[in-house]
Computed example of a mutant assay.
Amino acid sequence: MLLGIPNILPPDLLKVMFEMGHGDELVLADANFPAASHAQRIVRCDGHGIVELLEAIVKVLPLDDYVEKPASVMAVVSGDPILPSIWESYEAILKKKTNLSASLESLERFSFYERSRSAYAIVATGERTQYGNLILKKGVIREHE
């Protein structure tokens, strides 16, 4: 155990986030996402949802403030009647961290898959919400942090 580290974050995920550099990306993948076939590195967090993981991750991972939107979601496929309310939770968490009024970029499904293939790592979660996938871009740690 360590002080200040949320206990929901497993050692493998902490190691991956520590290794990442500025601009590297971390995918938080929902339970339907083909994580194993897309990942360069995979971390299993099957028992957790993305919202609870995101709340813990932003406590230790700086987000990129050199880009307009440091997080991306998978856009709903045309004709699919789903409106993912989970995105509102993501925005609320990210707003507290970044002070941006809108921090989420929307990527077409196959663009999201392609970007995930080049991500530093994919976290396979137990999130059951469709279109719950989220990409985070790591920022820099400054002296005052």
Results as ranks from 00 to 15, higher is better:
Ile42Thr: 02
Lys97Tyr: 07
Ile93Ala: 12
Ser101Ile: 15
Thr98Ile: 14
Arg115Cys: 03
Pro81Cys: 12
Val51Tyr: 04
Leu104Ala: 14
Lys15Arg: 13
Gln130Trp: 08
Asp24Phe: 06
Val123Tyr: 11
Val123Leu: 08
Arg41Leu: 03
Ala75Lys: 14
Leu53Tyr: 01
Pro62Val: 02
Ala121Trp: 10
Lys69Ala: 11
Arg142Phe: 07
Ala92Met: 15
Gly126Met: 08
Ile50Tyr: 04
Asp12Trp: 00
Ser85Asp: 09
Ala71Leu: 09
Cys45Glu: 01
Val67Cys: 10
Leu136Met: 09
Gly21Lys: 12
Lys69Glu: 15
Tyr90Ala: 05
Val140Ser: 09
Leu9Thr: 00
Val73Arg: 14
Leu28Tyr: 11
Pro62His: 02
Ile50Cys: 04
Gly132Asn: 05
Lys96Asp: 14
Leu61Met: 12
Arg44Asp: 08
Pro81Ala: 13
Asp46Gln: 09
Tyr66Ala: 14
Ala119Pro: 09
Asp30Val: 08
Met17Cys: 08
Arg41Trp: 07
Lys95Leu: 14
His48Ile: 00
Gly49Met: 01
Glu52Cys: 02
Asp65Cys: 05
Thr125Lys: 11
Leu54Tyr: 10
Ile82Gln: 10
Gln130Tyr: 10
Asn133Gly: 05
Asn32Phe: 14
Leu28Cys: 03
Arg128Glu: 04
Ser116Val: 02
Glu19Asp: 11
Ser72Phe: 10
Leu3Glu: 09
Asp12Ser: 07
Val123Gly: 01
Arg109Asp: 11
Val16Trp: 05
Gly139Phe: 13
Ser103Asn: 11
Phe33Trp: 05
Pro84Glu: 12
Arg117Ser: 10
Val16Met: 10
Leu53Asp: 02
Gly23Phe: 01
Ala71Trp: 06
Glu145Thr: 07
Tyr120Trp: 15
Asn7Glu: 08
Leu83Asp: 13
Glu88Ala: 14
Val51Cys: 07
Ser89Glu: 13
Phe33Gln: 03
Asp12Asn: 09
Pro81Tyr: 15
Thr125Val: 04
Ser78Val: 12
Gly139Cys: 00
Ile57Phe: 13
Glu25Cys: 00
Ala56Trp: 08
Cys45Trp: 06
Glu52Pro: 03
Tyr90Gln: 07
Ile57Gln: 02
Gly47Asp: 06
Glu127Gly: 09
Leu94Pro: 02
Arg115Ile: 02
Leu2Phe: 07
Met20Phe: 05
Pro70Gln: 06
His48Glu: 02
Ile50Asn: 07
Glu108Phe: 05
